[in-house]
């Protein structure tokens, strides 16, 4: 029963993670064709994951390796595309002064670091998995630190923008 709940929760986690990362790139990439591709891939991915979960429920052992591998490859490709888009049309003087850079770096480091452990999780014994699962924790922590840095930089940039263009209270009072 607990194993079943874990499988369902694992699948839901993959779906939510893929959707979050996918929509992050959907809103931050400039290429319209790519945006459409991301949107339809998200829909297809959700359908595939749910179908996979219901049809092959008994075949699951611990982790849904195929969706996770696809997710990692797809999102890593989007990270690289994002970086190259930033080289071609830079948004800021220094790329690391934008919050998106740190978020994308966090996503990329996490997915690259955990790529092999997710692929090979089916081929490892429980003891090995217990030993090496710490890789996932390490990269998850790095990802969270980088996300935190991104959020901090976003807040700092917004504060700077407000200082540059102070909020016009009078216009709000006149046009509530």
């Amino acid at each position: 029963m607990t194993a079943n709940i874990n499988i369902i929760l694992g699948s839901l986690f993959t779906i939510i993670e893929f959707c979050s990362f996918g929509f992050f790139f959907y809103f931050n990439l400039k290429n319209n064709l790519l945006k459409k591709l991301i949107f339809f891939t998200i829909i297809a991915f959700v359908i595939f994951c749910l179908t996979n979960l219901f049809l092959q429920f008994s075949a699951y052992e611990a982790l849904d390796t195929i969706p996770v591998t696809f997710q990692a490859l797809f999102i890593m490709t989007l990270c690289v595309i994002y970086f190259f888009e930033q080289i071609r049309n830079p948004k800021a003087l220094f790329i690391y002064s934008t919050s998106e850079f740190w978020i994308v770096t966090g996503i990329l480091v996490y997915l690259a670091g955990t790529f092999f452990i997710f692929i090979y999780s089916a081929n490892l014994t429980q003891a090995q998995l217990d030993t090496y699962w710490s890789i996932n924790y390490v990269f998850n922590t790095i990802k969270n630190i980088l996300f935190g840095l991104g959020i901090y930089i976003h807040g700092r940039n917004q504060r700077k923008a407000v200082e540059k263009n102070p909020f016009d209270y009078y216009s709000v009072l006149e046009n509530p």
Binding site: F83, V109, G113, Q128
Partner: peptide, 24 residues
């Protein structure tokens, strides 16, 4: 599998860091 896992993870990490440094 363990060897591939360890080398693969290190390799991916090196590639990622290399890519980020190159981009910056």
């Amino acid at each position: 599998a363990t060897t591939v896992l360890l080398f693969g993870t290190v390799g991916m990490l090196v590639l990622t860091i290399g890519l980020i440094v190159f981009i910056v």
